[in-house]
Computed example of a mutant assay.
Amino acid sequence: MSTPSFDRELDVRGLNCPLPILKAKKALAEIESGQVLKVVATDAGSLRDFQAFTRQTGHGLLAQQTEGAEFLHWVRKK
């Protein structure tokens, strides 16, 4: 499976809701519009959390993927 390219990677493994979203929000504030943030999480709830976060903020959710116990999210900054 092909995954989107990204400009920055954020490792939030071991953190539970709401910390992955809060750290992603901070990281998105530090990159340019149109750039992609890849988030690596271990919180299974992050799948639905990132869907809701991008829907509410207008950022683009390019892809989500599960690799073992890790959940990967690619978010394009609006």
Rank of each mutant, 00 (worst) to 15 (best):
A44R: 14
S46R: 01
A63E: 10
A41E: 05
G60A: 15
G34S: 02
F50S: 08
G14H: 08
D43Y: 11
A44S: 15
L47R: 10
A24P: 06
H59S: 12
A44N: 10
A44V: 15
K38W: 08
L47Y: 09
K26E: 14
L19D: 06
C17E: 04
K26P: 00
I21F: 02
L22D: 11
G34C: 02
N16C: 14
T57F: 05
V40K: 02
A41H: 10
C17G: 00
A24D: 09
T54E: 13
V40H: 00
I31M: 12
A29W: 00
K26R: 09
G58E: 12
L19Y: 02
L19W: 00
E32N: 11
A41I: 10
L61E: 12
L22N: 06
P20H: 10
Q35K: 13
T54I: 14
A63H: 08
A24R: 01
D43L: 10
C17V: 04
E32Y: 03
A41M: 06
L22H: 06
S46D: 13
P20N: 10
L62P: 14
E32M: 02
V12F: 03
G60M: 13
L28V: 06
G58Q: 11
D43W: 07
G14A: 10
A63V: 02
R13H: 04
G14T: 10
D11L: 02
I21Q: 01
G14P: 07
L22F: 07
G60Q: 15
P18Y: 05
I21S: 01
S33F: 06
Q35R: 07
G58D: 13
V12M: 03
A52F: 11
L15R: 07
